[in-house]
């Protein structure tokens, strides 16, 4: 799971993990957090990466062994859409990713914020239609309420099990 800092990655992870022991206070991740959880008989091992500029170089170390990528976008931060796009381009051009058919789930988070952009607008801004060699999907979510997250993770699980079957 990657995305810029303050986009809501850790909040989404804590939401996915379980409803019971959800952390009330999410602090900015340093380095990365590794989380294990089960969703619909699929065991996830999730690397929740730090999104801070100085820690983003860590992302590419984990590209090699990952089966799927969740890219979280803060849809209310219009200023840094360009930065997120830059990071996505770096990710797609990375040799460990570019040749593989890795499913990418885009989560346009913070849809509850008033000035948030719609998922369609973000897909256009990012030029997602140009990604032809990988399955991808974008969902508008709200990590505070969990809205939209269910659909997103269902699609992601489906994609992962499909690619697992093909192998």
């Amino acid at each position: 799971m990657v995305g810029l800092n303050n986009s809501g990655k850790s909040t989404i992870v804590s939401l996915l993990k379980s409803d019971g022991d959800r952390n009330s206070e999410i602090v900015p991740t340093i380095g990365l957090n590794i989380e294990h959880f089960r969703y619909q008989q699929v065991l996830f091992t999730m690397f929740d990466m730090s999104g801070q500029g100085k820690n983003r170089y860590l992302w590419e170390r984990y590209y090699k062994n990952c089966d799927g990528i969740i890219f979280v976008i803060d849809s209310s931060d219009r200023l840094r859409l360009a930065v997120a796009k830059e990071e996505l381009n770096l990710l797609l051009q990375h040799p460990d990713i570019s040749g593989r058919k890795v499913p990418i789930l885009f989560l346009a988070n913070k849809m509850d914020v008033r000035e948030a952009l719609s998922s369609v607008k973000i897909a256009n801004a990012f030029g997602l239609e140009k990604i032809k060699d990988k399955p991808w999907h974008i969902f508008a979510t709200s990590a505070l309420t969990g809205e939209g997250l269910q659909n997103g993770i269902e699609w992601f699980t489906e994609q992962l099990s499909q690619s697992d079957l093909n192998n």
Partner: peptide, 12 residues
Amino acid sequence: SMVFGKYGQEEH
């Protein structure tokens, strides 16, 4: 005029 520094969430 110009200014350089932290803006929003961005450092530079």
